[in-house]
Design a protein around this nucleic acid. Structure first.
Lengths: 173, 173
DNA sequence: TGATATTCTCTCGACGAACGAGATACTTGA
DNA sequence: TCAAGTATCTCGTTCGTCGAGAGAATATCA
């Protein structure tokens, strides 16, 4: 108890921290539920999200890149891609420019799966956003960008942190 | 592609959705990094967070409750608590009122661990919040609450969704 | 009171995701 | 051409998770 920093517990800022974390927990549970509804593992869902993101933003997805995104070993990444390929959600092809590399392309079935997950969620979110003015949404956007920055650790993240993410998943507007 | 809803891709709302998801991904990776730095598993970290929340808000934590929070089987929940108990972060004790139930109490070491994780993160977040006025922070709070509501699914969540959470992790202000 | 159903937790055996170490294929620079 | 570096994959092990079911305590009703 005495170790607890003095007055942070009641600051309105702490409400926001807890709230943000609650949203995160909710999204995680949502993803986990969607995963075992479709015979996937939570990691598979996360991987699919990253692959769809890459597809959407034109980033070239390779096993190494994907492993970095989801924080996985190379061995585990291979196994992950094997699973997704076996399910028909992803295809491997050699990069003609650098034939060491393998390029991952998402199948339409993966896109469809993505929309099955995100579609209703996005719908609920967008509906909820209708209660806000454009200015307020812009404030929320700036706020989330600030939080996104606070979450990205780059300095002395002690050993084993799988976060050397090079490409920002959210391209600045 | 033809399955993609018409014009959602470029709406400013979509920016917010992607941004929120990016923050979630960041927090997840942060948790995973913290986990294997301390010889824990991501699930253990999530469980500790819930246990600390319960401790903070005065909710009685039991194995069943914890399992529901993290979306785990009863067998897995037992194993999870075994791990945490072996590490000295949690203690089991019988509920004197209902002697079927086991009450979980967090050790000070767990609280310390929690602050090692959240301390720096909260600091960065609160610092980032200083760039916002009180009104703006209030807008952000309302926005996050709306998103939190959108994330909580209650109706026909198809089979296996582990989200029948009864107690709101974020007590309304 | 006694019998039955319900609730909560734990044990057992099996599966498979993730890891570490090392092998293989390709590219780049001297 | 050869060495060093990079990208991916293979092999064997560990351990978290699951399904099924047992045990203990409580609640319900005749």
């Amino acid at each position: 108890m005495s170790r607890r920093p003095p007055a942070t517990a009641e600051l309105p800022q702490m409400q926001l921290v807890h709230l943000l974390r609650a949203v995160t927990v909710g999204l995680d549970l949502l993803g986990a539920g969607f995963a075992n509804t479709h015979g996937l593992h939570p990691t598979d869902v996360r991987a699919l999200i990253h692959l769809l993101d890459a597809d959407r933003t034109g980033v070239a997805a390779t096993p190494g890149w994907l492993g970095a995104q989801v924080g996985l070993n190379s061995a585990s990444t291979t196994a992950l891609i094997d699973r997704l390929e076996r399910l028909g959600h992803v295809r491997r092809s050699r990069d003609p420019a650098d034939r060491r590399r393998v390029l991952l392309s998402v199948d339409p079935s993966a896109v469809e799966l993505g929309w099955m997950f995100f579609g209703p969620l996005i719908e609920r979110m967008v509906t909820a956003m209708q209660a806000f003015t454009d200015d307020e949404l812009d404030t929320a956007r700036r706020f989330l960008q600030a939080m996104h920055g606070a979450v990205q650790v780059r300095p002395g993240s002690p050993a084993g942190t799988p976060t050397p993410v090079d490409s920002d998943p959210v391209p600045s507007p």
